[in-house]
């Protein structure tokens, strides 16, 4: 095939993605350095770092960053640890294996707004929820999850969504594990734990790295669950960076500060992306 034709076929994808990357991002950079006012456009002047300063000194900034990181690390820990254990558990055949697998991965396909509302209402409601009923049945005081433990509630919802993803990836990866190797180890008297520790875990090293990085991209951007369930509150207790920027952009219409915050989010994601692309690129064969 001629080089020119190849280029022509690739052009639409490349040009569109280039535009999608460059146009909005340069607008964000521009907005983040000016004073922005929709009403008096002539006053829009260059202000340098002022917007970044404003965004970083906002009382919500520090809580938002720490909430973002707590949410990220907690969900990563829960999904990877339980994901590895559960996928190792359901790897061996047992009664109804196929159904169990389908049940386990289903939460991943529930849309985030539905996820948040099921948990907020039917599970965590302090009066009528299932958790409240369980507490009452055990003679305990029901907990108002969303106001007492807002960030933990969000962590539960998001983990419920992403644990199935981890299971799905690990189960797929385990299917390619060498069964002969396992049998040989068993013959040599290795216990189940030894096989798990010295054969399964090393086999899963790469899938774990991939899951951690893919989830990080999505977990840094958790939004709908917070919007629908806690609204970032009480106070800033469940506000993350994404929600804070949304709040400044569309609720307070502070375009300049929101753009400065957006750029910080881009930088944060790029640090993660750098490692992801290196890991994936190494294994890419063309």
């Amino acid at each position: 095939m001629k080089r020119s034709i190849t280029r022509l076929l690739m052009a639409p994808s490349v040009i569109l993605l280039l535009a999608w990357m460059i146009i909005p991002l340069s607008m964000t950079i521009y907005f983040s350095t000016i004073q922005f006012s929709s009403y008096n456009p002539d006053q829009n002047g260059f202000v340098g770092w002022q917007n970044f300063e404003f965004f970083i000194t906002d009382p919500a900034f520090i809580p938002a960053v720490s909430n973002t990181l707590i949410l990220l690390l907690s969900v990563l820990f829960i999904t990877v640890v339980f994901g590895v254990m559960l996928s190792a558990l359901i790897d061996k055949p047992f009664f109804g294996q196929g159904i169990v697998r389908v049940l386990l991965i289903s939460p991943f396909f529930i849309m985030p707004t539905v996820n948040a509302l099921i948990w907020k209402n039917m599970m965590m409601n302090p009066v009528y929820g299932i958790f409240a009923w369980i507490s009452q049945s055990l003679g305990l005081e029901p907990i108002d999850w969303l106001s007492s433990y807002p960030l933990m509630s969000i962590i539960i919802m998001v983990s419920w969504q992403w644990l199935p993803f981890a299971i799905l990836v690990f189960v797929t990866a385990l299917q390619s594990q060498d069964t002969e190797q396992k049998e040989a180890a068993q013959m040599d008297g290795a216990t189940g734990w030894h096989i798990f520790r010295y054969l399964t875990i090393p086999h899963l090293a790469r899938p774990i790295a991939v899951v951690v990085m893919i989830e990080t991209i999505f977990l840094l951007a958790v939004f709908a669950e917070i919007l629908v369930s806690t609204g970032g509150g009480p106070g800033y207790d469940s506000t993350n960076l994404t929600y804070l920027i949304y709040n400044q952009a569309l609720l307070q219409f502070d375009v300049a500060a929101a753009s400065a915050g957006g750029l910080l989010a881009v930088v944060l994601a790029n640090i993660v992306a750098f490692f992801l692309i290196r890991a994936v690129g190494k294994n890419l064969t063309v």
Partner: peptide, 8 residues
Amino acid sequence: PAVGVLVP
């Protein structure tokens, strides 16, 4: 991240 280009 989507939020980085929300404003534009």
